[in-house]
């Protein structure tokens, strides 16, 4: 179960629904001094109160690994989401590293909601955690919340997406540009340095744009290759499928597609398969190396390779950076976790 902690710190106020007995409704003698108390008698109020109650009660329910030591550090973590492999692995890395060091974790997820994530960070500040790890929902928007934590002398580490316009102890992230470049390099080798390729991107996100741009830049260095189309797949499979359909239709000569994440890659794979494209004639390069994509790669489909991030490493190194900070050792302000290519030969 996901925990909503937004209301955790607030006192639960049970509204006095009977401020105006119903028998007196309609009489104005008592009503004059009453400022719309009836609004509180609304059933909605009861629901709100109940939700706040649940939030308050479950506030302490999700503390992961803990140890009995008196000097245990408490680290607040707000993920971007818990519904994607990438962040599940990142979470696992954080948990493992924290368990090794005996840190106690308070785990939450922003669920793509900036306001929610800001509230979570503010909550950590109120709870006086010793440090915060944040996977920003929005690189610009999270700045002020991080500033508030820093002002309260709580060190913050960003994991994955970087936070812009604020100061963090360390920014731990994959190198998305390096990933895009790596994908282009693989594509060039697979196509024998010639041919038309396309990109299924997700221009709404910075990571998507970085990967796409690095890929396009690298292909541009090869005169016999060309990027003939860049379409938006929205990072989801069904939209990517439709984009790939259109690309394949409009460019029969196309020999390869780079997809900025695996959902897009698997959508492109479905489109290519329907059109009879096999690994012999077509190359798709994906990103993230999710189990489903890796399985497709191992089965020698046209999805031939993936750029793999190492989310576990990102998680572990975030904790490591905090450990160094606690021990007053020097901490690199930018920690780049390398990416690698996974293909059918990778064990």
């Amino acid at each position: 179960m996901r925990t909503r902690r937004a209301g955790a710190g607030l006192p639960v106020r049970v509204p006095n629904a009977d401020a105006c007995p119903s028998a007196q409704r309609g009489r104005r003698c008592t009503a004059r001094r009453r400022v719309r108390t009836e609004a509180l008698g609304n059933p909605l109020t009861a629901v709100v109160a109940a939700v706040m109650c649940i939030a308050a009660c479950s506030g302490s329910g999700d503390h992961a690994a803990s140890s009995g030591g008196a000097v245990t550090k408490v680290v607040g973590v707000t993920l971007l989401t818990r519904e994607q492999h990438f962040y599940q692995d990142l979470e696992a890395g954080v948990k493992d590293a924290a368990a090794r060091r005996g840190y106690r974790l308070v785990l939450t997820s922003g669920d793509f909601d900036l306001a929610k994530q800001q509230a979570q960070i503010d909550n950590f500040v109120v709870q006086h955690v010793d440090a915060i790890i944040v996977c920003p929902v929005n690189s610009q928007g999270i700045g002020p919340a991080i500033d508030r934590a820093t002002a309260a002398h709580i060190p913050v580490v960003s994991a994955d997406t970087k936070a812009v316009g604020t100061h963090v102890v360390a920014a731990v992230a994959s190198d998305n540009r390096a990933g895009g470049q790596l994908a282009a390099t693989y594509m060039v080798r697979a196509l024998g340095d010639s041919g038309a390729v396309a990109v299924i991107g997700q221009p709404e996100t910075q990571t998507g744009l970085d990967r796409q741009q690095a890929f396009v830049d690298e292909i541009g260095r090869h005169p016999r290759m060309a990027v003939v189309a860049i379409l938006n797949g929205g990072g989801v499979r069904d939209r990517a499928l439709k984009a790939a359909d259109d690309i394949l239709q409009g460019h029969p000569e196309l020999r390869g597609i780079f997809a900025i994440n695996d959902e897009s890659a698997l959508g492109a794979l479905a489109a290519a398969t329907t059109r009879g494209k096999t690994g012999a004639t077509f190359t798709i390069v994906g990103y993230d190396a999710t189990p489903e994509a890796v399985k497709a790669i191992k089965s020698h489909s046209s999805l031939k390779a993936d750029v793999a991030q190492q989310p576990r490493d990102i998680g572990e190194r975030s904790i490591d950076a905090l450990a160094a900070y606690f021990d007053h050792r020097p901490v690199d302000s930018v920690i780049t976790v390398p990416v690698r290519v996974v293909d059918a030969e990778t064990p």
Partner: peptide, 12 residues
């Protein structure tokens, strides 16, 4: 069936 897989974020 088209995607060859059921994806929970389909149909957004």
């Amino acid at each position: 069936a088209r995607l060859g897989a059921a994806v929970p974020n389909a149909g957004l």
